[in-house]
Amino acid sequence: MSNVHRDDIGSKLGMWLFIFTEILLFGGLFITYAVYRYLHPEAFHLASQELDVPIGTINTIILLISSATIAMSITAIQQKKKKLTLWLIASTIVLAAIFLINKYFEWGAKFEHGIFPGSEYLDSLGYGDVLFFGLYFFMTGLHAFHIIIGMAVLGFMFYYVKIDRLTFDNFQLLENGGLYWHLVDLIWIFLFPLFYLIA
């Protein structure tokens, strides 16, 4: 019966509801952040200086561009421009990969300085630093995990567009994938100032 009748709005509603759960999932971490930031304002301030603002800014811009490209792919598919659609989805995935590579080097540099959860060096720095970097790794890590999932989702969308399962009059899945990707962007929009810009 699901083949007989397609409900695009229902499908979109489902995606939005899922996005709400994701917002609340990160919401739990934002609550934690708010509490510990309040309890250790000075230490958070100092610890934030350890983070690399230029890399953070570049990554923010990369994610914003990727958000724009996936949004444009929906315009492209509605205009029946299959090639452009594929190209836009692919560039979104590539941008996501660049984001992850940057993240990898950023994390790697921290690890080299002995800053990672449970390390002796970090524990010796004091409560505020432990909590700041605990949250930093946990939140950006969870965010990176969402990026990986998002890349997989968009990979499927690429394939579906390619085999014409998604077309100009049946593109709700692509729109849902796009919504998910914007969510990833949305969360980063808040993570960036909260971690990089409070120094």
């Binding site: 934690t32 510990y36 309890l39 250790h40 959860p117 449970g118 524990d123 004091g126 409560y127 505020g128 432990v130 909590l131 605990g134 949250l135 790794f137 946990f138």
Partner: peptide, 11 residues
């Protein structure tokens, strides 16, 4: 990972 979110010994 022994992060310390809820561990009073780590703040």
């Amino acid at each position: 990972f022994n992060i310390g979110f809820f561990d009073p010994a780590k703040g």
